[in-house]
Design a protein around this nucleic acid. Structure first.
Lengths: 200, 200
DNA sequence: CCCTCAGGTTAACGACCGCTAACCTCCCTG
DNA sequence: CAGGGAGGTTAGCGGTCGTTAACCTGAGGG
């Protein structure tokens, strides 16, 4: 795929700043005037680009879920026939990339879902469910002694582990992105391995 | 300590319901009228028991952090001189009990901290920091090859893992509390073990 | 038997917030 | 060069929300 070199559109600027603000202070804690100010225009100017505040959140959440799912599907297709360990590693790597590069989005992802209109919320939940099931199938192939409910719990728990990046302090205080990614990766693998041993 | 058999006070009722509502819809997403309705009185009646909506959140968050820290200190004192493995197991057990029994509080704990007044927020952060440092010291005793920043990251990540219980579906759909607790415990130990091996 | 007070009630105020209306100003294009 | 749309602006409306004020009530104590 072509990496983008062109400047971000106004819509993209708005989405990025809105994500940051929503993650920092919550959906209801941010006013449209603040979002506008963050991109250099004033509140009502946003309505030239979005139908409303809700629409921004919806586009963010649908985008996140879709991106995660699409990426996972691609990785699964690329690793077709590979060993289950390698496939799981690829999924973990993709999730870590996302968690480290788009921290505000990861935060929003499991925090503001209930602020969506019914139709959008159902869509996001469906995408999330597909993503989880994809992980569950890989995990169960690698650890067949895990029951399906246990595998699902394990996957959710590892998501909790990987999504903890927002709590790891400001990006500067970390031991470096590569080190952090490697640590998270090792821990995720260790957690799955521990889940898969002993009684399920 | 004496287990309480007496009925909960009105204050406690309010705090419990407020915690549930805040966790479900966010601090700004809940009105005082709703909180009042949840305990059978109407909005302004709450002001006989609390100085304001902020005060409820503050009391909840300070209470959570304090409870976690106090429990951890007690467990550390009780396990004085025991093997590091046993001490870590005790810490994990305590955290899991909390995460499973007080899900709304766990949710609030890392979600609504920024809505507090400066003085309260600093207090909560200080309690949280002490709690983390306590874990870090135990983890480093068990895995001396871990650098301190890595150990701290590992602790935060395991908190993410253990605090994922709100995402595990309604309490009924789980394989049973004991099974879930055991799974989480194993995964936490596995994650730490994986963090502590290989290069730090 | 009154007084007090804890713990409620309803009415209402002021602030804020999402959103719309009306208007303005470039820039592109036929 | 006219004109029209894209992308802004400010003023303001309507609703909601936290909080206060004023009032009510029932139970306990001197």
């Amino acid at each position: 795929m072509a990496t983008r070199t062109d400047a971000p559109t106004r819509r993209e600027q708005i989405l990025k700043e809105a994500a940051r603000l929503f993650a920092e202070r919550g959906f209801h804690g941010v006013g449209v005037d603040e979002i506008g100010a963050a991109v250099g225009i004033s509140g009502p100017g946003l309505y030239r680009h979005f139908a409303g505040k809700d629409a921004m959140l919806a586009e963010l959440l649908v985008g996140i879920s879709g991106q995660l799912l699409t990426g996972a599907k691609r990785r699964l297709a690329e690793a077709d026939g590979a060993a289950p360990e390698a496939v799981l590693d690829s999924l973990i790597e993709g999730h870590i990339d996302f968690a480290l590069d788009d921290r505000p989005l990861i935060t929003l992802h499991d925090r503001e879902l209930d602020r969506l209109r019914d139709t959008d919320r159902k869509l996001v939940r469906q995408l999330q469910r597909q993503y989880v099931e994809l992980w569950v199938s890989v995990v169960r192939r690698l650890y067949p002694e895990l029951t399906e409910p246990s595998a699902r719990s394990a996957v959710h728990s590892v998501f909790g582990l990987l999504n903890s990046t927002p709590h790891l302090g400001r990006p500067g205080s970390l031991p470096g992105r590569g080190t952090t990614a490697a640590l998270l990766h090792r821990m995720a693998r260790g957690a799955f391995a521990a889940a898969g041993t002993d009684r399920p």
